[in-house]
């Protein structure tokens, strides 16, 4: 954590930035909990995805759009379309992170569809789900592994990828 004040897109207060640092990990944790219990308890891929995106949205609002790319992923970011003047020369290519969001979306869809097709390969109808009960897992003891988790994970990735793409694209405008 660098101590110098950092120029951001807007002026956000120290309070907001500090609280964001505390809150975002909690949001992510809750999101993961919702994702894992979603197959038979309140929760699921969709709501977990939405919650994750709210965490990212908070970072975007408080720290600015480029923070994720520059500080978290250590990338050099090409400034995109900010000076709208002489727009002809401006590159029309999406910043890499948007492409990655799109890939998250694709992978999620593929995962969800694949989880349905695997059931077909095993001789069950499309999208059939099963559950394994594991006893005697070290530390954890009794454990359930539901195949629905794969589908939920797919939904989660679709929601995260889709919403982040929207946030990043609309946010850049």
């Amino acid at each position: 954590m660098s101590s110098e004040p950092r120029p951001t897109d807007g002026d956000t207060t120290v309070i907001a930035r500090t609280i964001t640092r505390v809150v975002v990990p909690i949001i992510m944790l809750v999101a993961i909990a919702l994702l894992l219990q979603g197959h038979n308890l309140p929760g699921g891929g969709f709501i977990a995805g939405v919650l994750t995106v709210t965490g990212f949205a908070l970072i975007y609002v408080i720290y600015g759009l480029r923070y994720v790319e520059q500080e978290l992923l250590h990338r050099t970011v090409v400034p995109r379309s900010l000076p709208i003047s002489e727009g002809a020369a401006e590159t029309d290519v999406d910043p890499p992170i948007i492409k990655e969001f799109g890939e998250i979306f694709t992978v999620g869809l593929a995962l969800a569809a694949a989880s349905g097709i695997v059931a077909m390969a095993l001789g069950f109808p499309f999208l059939s789900q099963g559950v394994w009960f594991l006893a005697g897992v070290p530390l954890y003891g009794h454990m359930e592994v539901a195949s629905a988790l794969a589908f939920d994970l797919g939904v989660y990735l679709v929601v995260v990828g889709g919403l982040l793409t929207i946030l990043a694209v609309v946010g850049a405008e």
């Binding site: 069950f124 109808p125 499309f126 999208l127 059939s128 789900q129």
Partner: peptide, 9 residues
Amino acid sequence: ETLTYQVSN
């Protein structure tokens, strides 16, 4: 014939 299919069983 009328074929049916129960998705997810």
